[in-house]
């Protein structure tokens, strides 16, 4: 049986609102195994991004706990596995505008502690793999949306994480480019043996994951 790369139990999150506490997540539990792809679909405002942030350690749940497989450390709190155990792909790419494509990817490796030369080499190899070998020195402003998302995917993978969390990775792209990015994401993640949690409101893309969930009313249930 494959290793568990993510274990979430009883997650709950509520936000303050003028009408009082507004529950967004209610008793969410999830297990994801190595190499597996999981999609979470939901309408806008259903709490998909909030769930992803709890799973990735960008925010703390009000209740429950999350454990993520970190290389050489076993299951640990997501905050301590950021950058190494987990890689993020965001809807708006979130690249550093002053850094080239190569530097953006290498930055993730540098932050994780790699030397400048090994970070650059790993970044170069990944960018070639995602089809941007000719765009290494381009700034994000000189890249198309699809190219920016390829850079973001390479950045998420550069530290060989066990889990990729993708938040609406095709949300800003046209249909054809979105489909290309999905192909790339699923292919590259599978190549590297990582697990993928894909948050999307697109039924079509959600259907391509091995396991599918729907988030509605704060409750996560199988699709």
């Amino acid at each position: 049986m494959p290793d568990i790369v993510l274990q979430a139990r009883g997650l709950a999150k509520a936000f303050a609102s003028p009408a009082g506490r507004l529950p967004v997540l209610t008793d969410v539990s999830l297990e994801v195994f190595a190499g597996e792809s999981v999609s979470i679909r939901g309408s806008s405002g259903s709490g998909k991004t909030t769930l992803l942030q709890q799973l990735g350690g960008l925010d703390q749940p009000d209740a429950g706990e999350v454990r993520i497989l970190a290389p050489g450390a076993g299951l640990v709190a997501p905050r301590s596995s950021l950058g190494r155990g987990v890689g993020f792909v965001f809807q708006n790419y979130q690249l550093m505008p002053e850094l080239t494509a190569l530097e953006n990817v290498a930055l993730a490796a540098r932050v994780a502690g790699a030397s400048a030369s090994s970070a650059t080499e790993a970044a170069r190899a990944l960018l070639v793999q995602v089809g941007l070998g000719a765009r290494l020195e381009h700034l994000p402003a000189k890249l198309s949306g699809g190219e920016c998302q390829r850079v973001a995917i390479a950045r998420a993978l550069v530290n060989r994480p066990s889990l990729i969390l993708a938040d609406e990775p095709t949300g800003n792209l046209d249909e054809r480019t979105g489909a290309e990015i999905m192909d790339l994401l699923l292919g590259v993640v599978a190549d590297r043996g990582a697990a993928l949690i894909l948050v999307t409101h697109s039924r079509e893309f959600a259907e391509r994951a091995a396991r599918r969930f729907v988030l509605s009313g704060g409750v996560l249930s199988p699709a």
Binding site: L58, R84, F88, F90, A112
Partner: peptide, 16 residues
């Protein structure tokens, strides 16, 4: 702000 958030998602420590 978003870049600060991205750096955190990459594992940057607060002191960094």
């Amino acid at each position: 702000s978003r870049e600060v958030g991205v750096l955190a998602s990459l594992g940057a420590a607060r002191w960094q």
